[in-house]
Write a protein that binds this DNA or RNA. Structure first.
Length: 597
RNA sequence: GGAGCUGUGGUGUAGCGGUUAACACGCCGGCCUGUCACGCCGGAGAUCGCGAGUUCGAUUCUCGUCAGCUCCGCCA
């Protein structure tokens, strides 16, 4: 009686195993049938190993092997043999050995798969998502799953050693004002009332500090019902933590150690500490972004002073109206055609820039429709400031600061990508800090918290909360990783008076504050330690560590851009009886009740 | 809510106002005892996302629609 229990993983075999008898299980990666000899590459999550089946020695196994096809599930018993001289395969880890089959069992058959199980396939994401279980069978996706596991484990171990307690917080919680749109869950026991899924465990972790937990963490799913992007999913995972009796430097320096360890132990990259720090204002001025990609230069250059004096009306009217005029140098792009420059203008228009002025720098001077508005010395100062020489192209945007930043910031990234100026082997981390506590929301016509309403203002700015809210600086910091916001946190308000002032600054009435956050204000009355914390987007960290362009590649079962799951067809309709039980009626004729097949 | 790109055998692509819709991989059958992108021979497989319009004729042009992706808005 043959025992078919696996004794070893395919990818773990090497010279040391030679002459061992092993039992392997796995999927048929490829089958090479030479008529008189069959090779099967057997694959499991560790890799592949070549299995040889000879008709002379094992005719029964051979005839079974003839019927085997790709992705069949097999168990193979055999001897680990050294490959014949010259037939080693240096391309695979197990290439020195092969399995001389003695017995073979087909555990299951497989239809031809809609996508092939190999790396570098170019299949439509549509199909990959519909057959996600097959997509995940591909080695690169398996690698991502393993990376995810490794990363969580490294983080968990690091935080454990540093005295953090892993504590779970509720998933059924309540909707609070501010922030993203909530996912709601109807309450059956309380007709007409709803739970909300957490956008983050923010309030709970602060209350845990009140409880004396001192250091908390959680690797936790969060939910935000907003539109999706390549780095945004409706449910995503945060590495969430909070510490008592610390200031921002304590948090940042500990987190730098954690991130550095994560990088070294997952992708063997050593990152320098301390991380670079940049103020929000400096980040916006130099990169046009609060999450600058600092792997390359191409910084924005301010020419407000020259614009102010020049004859070009568009420029000087902007400066006199409180706007900004800034530019960027596209190195070696003087040869751009009219069409290419038009395309850049169109690109800038996405960010509401009304125009894109340009200077083409040549040996014989500057060519530009607006050059005539500038004096020669103004042009020279300008070229010097950009360190521009013949062959370069200068691009300018004049507008409200916000538009100048976002248009040029995006243009900077766009050009860098176009010109292949981004060193993809670099891993740059930086902290952006000194954010404004509040920003004015034109639509709602009120101040809103830039981070969240529990972020502490700087001590010396507290008095400005009432007089000049826009000037108040927050004790907040974001971790930026290769131009992606990978995390953010702050020192929190731990004082009832300040918290009430904050609520009032964002236009939350006393009644509302009491109704929505009364429990929190109450908690602050019972001895709340100073505390602060941070949360990282685990999916984004993994995306960057894995060198992927979207977090979907590091999420086992992600949603499409329209928030659907193509594999299980969610969201889906529910039985009317379920709705009735919840006292819910679907209003409106446009209610979608279709089920995808 | 908006903009752009994409949609052709199982997969990835080519193509064009009239084609027998082409190619590669895969698949099926045959041959093959050292391959590993195995090789050789043969074969099957596509109402060109869906709907309407223009046209003698639409996979091709136009409009709409659906789906996927990228982005703006949104995302404390």
């Amino acid at each position: 009686m043959q025992n078919w229990k696996r004794t070893v993983y395919c990818g773990d075999l090497n010279k040391d195993n030679i002459s061992e008898t092993v039992v392997l299980t796995g999927w048929v990666d490829t089958r090479r049938d030479h008529g008189g000899l069959i090779f099967i590459d057997l694959r499991d999550r560790t890799g592949i190993v070549q299995v040889v089946i000879s008709p002379d020695t094992v005719p029964e196994a051979f005839s079974k092997a003839e019927g085997v096809r790709s992705e069949y599930v097999l168990a193979v018993t055999g001897n680990v043999g050294k490959r014949p001289e010259g037939s080693e395969n240096p391309n695979i880890n197990t290439g020195d050995v092969e399995i001389i089959t003695s017995e073979l069992k087909v555990l299951n058959r497989a239809k031809t798969t809609p996508i092939s199980i190999e790396d570098n396939i170019n299949a439509d994401e549509n199909i990959r998502l519909r057959y996600r279980y097959l997509d995940l069978r591909r080695p690169e996706m398996q690698k991502n799953l393993m990376l995810r596991h490794r990363a969580s484990k490294i983080i968990r171990d690091f935080l454990d050693v540093n005295n953090f307690l892993e504590i779970e917080t509720p998933m059924l919680t309540r909707s609070t004002p501010e922030g993203a749109r909530d996912y709601l869950v109807p309450s059956r026991l309380h007709t007409g009332n709803f739970y909300a899924l957490p956008q983050s465990p923010q309030i709970f972790k602060q209350l845990l500090m009140v409880s004396g937990v001192d250091r908390y963490f959680q690797i936790v799913r969060c939910f935000r019902d907003e539109d999706l992007r390549s780095d945004r999913q409706p449910e995503f995972t945060q590495v969430d933590l909070e510490m008592s009796f610390v200031d921002e430097d304590d948090i940042m320096s500990l987190m730098e150690k954690m991130i550095a360890r994560l990088c070294s132990e997952t992708i063997d990259v050593q990152v320098d500490q301390p991380f670079q720090r940049l103020s929000y204002y400096e980040a916006m001025e130099r990169y046009g972004s609060d999450k600058p990609d600092t792997r390359f230069g191409m910084e924005l250059v301010d020419i407000g002073d020259i614009a102010e004096k020049c004859e070009f009306k568009v420029f000087n009217s902007v400066t006199s109206g409180g706007g900004k005029v800034k530019g960027i140098k596209a190195p070696g792009c003087a040869s751009f055609s009219r069409k290419e420059i038009d395309d850049l203008t169109e690109f800038a228009a996405i960010y509401k820039a009304r125009g894109l002025a340009y200077f083409i720098v040549t040996e014989s001077g500057v060519k530009s429709p607006i050059a005539k508005f500038f004096k020669e010395d103004e042009i020279n100062i300008l070229l010097e400031r950009f360190e521009a020489g013949p062959g370069d192209l200068l691009l300018f945007v004049a507008d409200k600061p916000k538009i100048v930043y976002s248009a040029l910031g995006a243009l900077r990234l766009h050009l860098a990508e176009m010109l292949d100026l981004i060193p993809y082997n670099k891993y740059n981390f930086l902290w952006v800090s000194d954010f404004p506590l509040l920003e004015y929301d034109e639509e709602e016509r009120r101040w809103v918290a830039m981070h969240h309403p529990f972020t502490s203002p700087r001590e010396e700015d507290i008095e400005l909360l009432e007089s000049d809210p826009g000037k108040v600086r927050a004790r907040a910091y974001d971790l930026v990783f290769n131009g992606v916001e990978a995390g953010g946190g702050s020192v929190r308000i731990h004082n009832r008076d300040v918290q009430e002032k904050m609520f009032s600054a964002i236009g939350l009435s006393e009644e509302e504050a009491r109704e929505k956050f009364g429990f929190m204000l109450d908690a602050f009355d019972y001895g709340t330690p100073p505390h602060g914390g941070i949360a990282f987007g685990l999916d984004r960290l993994l995306m960057l560590l894995a060198g992927k362009k979207t977090i979907r590649d590091v999420i086992p079962f992600p949603k499409t851009q329209s928030g659907t799951d193509l594999m299980m067809s969610s969201p889906g309709s529910v039985d009317p009886a379920q709705l009735q039980e919840l006292h819910i009626k679907i209003a409106g004729k446009n209610s979608k009740n279709k089920t995808r097949v």
